[in-house]
Simulated scan of single mutants.
Amino acid sequence: MRFLLNVIWLLLCGIWMALGYVVAGVICCILIITIPFGIASFRIAAYALWPFGRTVIRQPTAGFWSAIGNVIWVVVAGIWLALGHIVTGVLLCITIIGIPLGVANFKMIPVSLLPLGRQIVRIDEVTTRPSTA
Rank of each mutant, 00 (worst) to 15 (best):
R2I: 04
R2K: 15
R2G: 15
F3S: 15
L4T: 12
L4Q: 09
L5W: 05
N6Y: 05
V7W: 15
V7S: 14
I8D: 09
W9L: 04
L10A: 15
C13Y: 02
C13G: 10
G14R: 05
G14C: 11
I15H: 09
I15W: 13
I15E: 10
M17Q: 12
M17D: 05
A18G: 14
A18E: 12
L19D: 07
L19W: 14
G20H: 11
G20T: 13
Y21F: 11
Y21V: 01
V22M: 09
G25P: 09
G25V: 03
I27F: 15
C29P: 00
I30Y: 08
L31T: 12
I32C: 09
T34V: 01
T34A: 03
T34H: 00
I35F: 04
P36G: 01
G38W: 00
S41R: 04
F42L: 14
I44V: 14
I44N: 07
I44G: 01
A45P: 14
A45Y: 03
A48C: 14
A48D: 13
W50Y: 07
G53C: 05
R54N: 13
T55N: 06
T55I: 07
T55G: 11
V56G: 00
R58H: 07
Q59I: 03
T61D: 13
A62V: 02
G63F: 00
G63Q: 03
G63N: 03
G63Y: 01
W65F: 11
W65G: 01
S66A: 14
I68H: 02
I68P: 00
G69T: 02
N70V: 00
N70S: 01
N70F: 00
I72R: 00
I72C: 07
W73Y: 03
V74Q: 11
V74P: 05
V75D: 14
V76I: 12
V76W: 10
V76Q: 03
V76T: 08
A77H: 06
A77Y: 08
G78T: 06
G78F: 02
G78R: 00
I79H: 13
W80S: 13
A82M: 10
L83I: 11
L83V: 09
H85A: 14
I86D: 09
V87P: 03
T88A: 15
T88V: 15
T88R: 15
G89L: 10
G89V: 13
G89N: 11
L91I: 12
L91K: 03
L92P: 07
L92W: 04
I96D: 08
I96H: 02
I97D: 12
G98A: 04
I99N: 09
P100A: 10
P100D: 12
P100L: 11
L101M: 08
L101A: 05
G102F: 00
V103H: 06
A104G: 08
A104E: 15
A104T: 12
M108F: 07
M108Y: 07
M108P: 08
I109H: 09
P110S: 11
P110D: 12
V111Q: 04
S112M: 08
L113S: 10
L113C: 09
P115I: 03
P115R: 02
L116Y: 06
L116N: 05
G117Y: 06
G117C: 06
R118Q: 15
Q119F: 01
I120L: 08
I120E: 12
R122W: 05
I123Y: 05
E125M: 03
V126R: 05
R129F: 00
P130V: 01
S131H: 02
S131Y: 02
S131Q: 06
T132E: 14
